[in-house]
């Protein structure tokens, strides 16, 4: 009885976590439908989907430190889902840019890519995210073995590309970039800390032996 109850709760939790990241997309779709996105709906959609691609990537990166620092284990179950959602929003972000802003004009696309370097950096980040999404299944994880972990360390350079992508767009106010940068600094810094700690432990053990 108790088991069945906790199973039901587990399902509920899964559905809530699964549906929550879709809310921004739902909000955008609804407001686009009722023409409530202002004078430049294209820009609004591109901006919001980009923001959520980053938010979800940062959430993905937060799950390991949450476990190590705060002993919070349950989010680990959703790390893959959050990563895939980040890829999903990044893909919508790029598709919206190409469709709504460029109107698929290839001449403009080439010009934009060559003249707006931050677009290249962002596109590179998305490109590198794709193999991570493709190899996110359990089968792929098994097949790649140790290499899977190595491959998925790509998420660190990707997060740095994302930072460059948004810093390069600063007009005059860097408040948002500062917040994202500080959070990322903590997320990557904690990994560095644990890595160094493990290394000294191994070295000490080697010396003792």
């Amino acid at each position: 009885m108790a088991k069945a109850k906790s199973k039901a709760l587990g399902y509920l939790e899964w559905w809530v976590v699964f549906l929550l990241p879709l809310a921004p997309l739902g909000w955008l779709t609804y407001n686009a439908w009722i023409f409530n996105l202002g004078a430049d709906p294209a820009q609004e959609i591109v901006l919001e989907t980009g923001v959520w691609a980053i938010n979800l990537l940062w959430i993905t990166l937060a799950i390991t430190p949450l476990r190590r620092v705060f002993k919070l284990n349950w989010p680990l179950r959703y790390r893959r889902m959050m990563g895939l959602y980040s890829l999903f929003y990044a893909a919508v972000h790029l598709l919206a840019f190409a469709t709504f802003i460029l109107g698929w004009r290839w001449d403009l696309l080439l010009k934009e890519l060559s003249e707006r370097p931050y677009i290249i950096v962002g596109a590179l980040g998305l490109l590198l995210l794709i193999p991570l999404g493709v190899t996110s299944t359990r089968g792929m994880q098994r097949r790649l073995g140790r290499n899977w972990l190595k491959l998925h360390k790509l998420v660190y350079p990707i997060s740095l590309l994302v930072m460059v992508h948004i810093i390069w767009q600063i007009r005059s106010d860097f408040g948002e970039q500062l917040v994202y940068g500080l959070i990322l600094g903590f997320l990557l810094g904690s990994r560095m800390y644990f890595y160094l700690q493990r290394k000294t432990r191994v070295m000490r053990a080697a010396r003792a032996a």
Partner: peptide
């Protein structure tokens, strides 16, 4: 502006 989604 205003632009629409189907016409940049």
């Amino acid at each position: 502006l205003p632009s629409s989604l189907f016409n940049p």
